[in-house]
């Protein structure tokens, strides 16, 4: 395995460990959807994106938007690991007055670009950022992580069509296709498949990958740099709860509560495992 890929896999495992620790036992937390995006988040923050934790407002930084805002724990873990704020804040998640809210809050958390969490809105904000970059003649990229359940929101498709019309080729969507939404499998609730085909029809360049294969993630992000005149969607097949055995494929851990035993089991597995 290449050193870069091995390092990113190690980082992703650390993010998952932090996610489990942030939630802790006995309290609800968005474990499943945070773990499913952890690999892509690791690849972006620790390799792909141009950013400066000491200068979060740097104008030419690449932007990261978590449209599926409930995956915030993965982003918080990455921001802390990068040094946007002290790791000691991770333990304050959702405490009254904490900088780490249940969903991303730009006013409270250094490194968070916008307020997201009301599903379906992040891609519109990303479009606005990409248009702003174009008006200013800047070269930065905007990465926007969407959930597959979120694709039921009509605004996602309004934004998808606008991005294609405006040829926003600095905009990269990452679709976290874990197949589950809060109350069950998407295909059993209101099946929105086939999503990659729908994004192609909307005018996007679609790259389908295994969202837990770090090599494929990195290659897809690199490929996105070369696409012209079209926005890029990386359709990443993922597992909700990935890396936490009892939470994998389990909608109960969308915002579930770990018992003390489960918590200890998850911590141990992520601490011991070689590749998460």
């Amino acid at each position: 395995m290449k050193p870069l890929i091995a390092e990113l896999k190690r980082k992703a495992r650390k993010l998952r460990h932090d996610i489990v620790c942030m939630i802790g036992p006995g309290r609800p937390g968005h474990l499943g959807g945070s773990c499913s995006v952890a690999d892509a988040v690791a690849a972006l923050y620790f390799h792909k994106m141009k950013h400066d934790p000491k200068n979060p407002g740097w104008e030419d930084r690449d932007r990261f938007l978590l449209s599926k805002g409930h995956g915030a724990l993965a982003q918080y873990a990455a921001l802390a690991e990068c040094g946007y704020f002290s790791r000691s804040h991770l333990k304050t998640l959702k405490n009254l007055g904490s900088m780490l809210q249940g969903h991303p809050d730009m006013a409270r958390t250094p490194g968070v670009e916008a307020n997201t969490g009301s599903l379906g809105q992040g891609l519109s904000i990303a479009c606005g950022m990409a248009l702003g970059a174009r008006v200013d003649g800047r070269e930065y990229r905007v990465y926007c992580v969407l959930g597959d359940g979120e694709n039921a929101e009509g605004q996602v498709w309004e934004a998808a069509m606008a991005a294609a019309y405006y040829r926003l080729d600095k905009l990269v969507g990452i679709l976290d296709m874990n197949g589950l939404q809060a109350t069950g499998p998407i295909r059993d609730l209101m099946d929105t498949s086939p999503l990659p085909e729908k994004w192609r029809a909307a005018g996007w360049h679609v790259i389908e990958i295994d969202g837990h294969d770090m090599q494929q993630i990195v290659e897809a992000l690199n490929k996105a740099d070369t696409v012209r005149d079209r926005p890029v969607l990386i359709a990443a097949r993922t597992v909700k709860g990935k890396g936490v055995a009892f939470a994998e494929h389990n909608p109960a851990f969308h915002n579930g509560v770990m018992t003390q035993m489960q918590y200890e089991e998850a911590c141990k597995a992520l601490a011991d495992s070689e590749d998460g």
Binding site: S124, M161, Y165
Partner: peptide, 28 residues
């Protein structure tokens, strides 16, 4: 024309795009 964005009949998307533009220092 380069600073006027027609988004089609999509008011929700328009408000979201405006948020993104404001985040890049524009006054939408």
């Amino acid at each position: 024309p380069e600073r006027h964005f027609e988004v089609g009949i999509a008011e929700a998307n328009m408000a979201g795009i405006a948020a993104g533009l404001a985040l890049t220092g524009k006054i939408p």
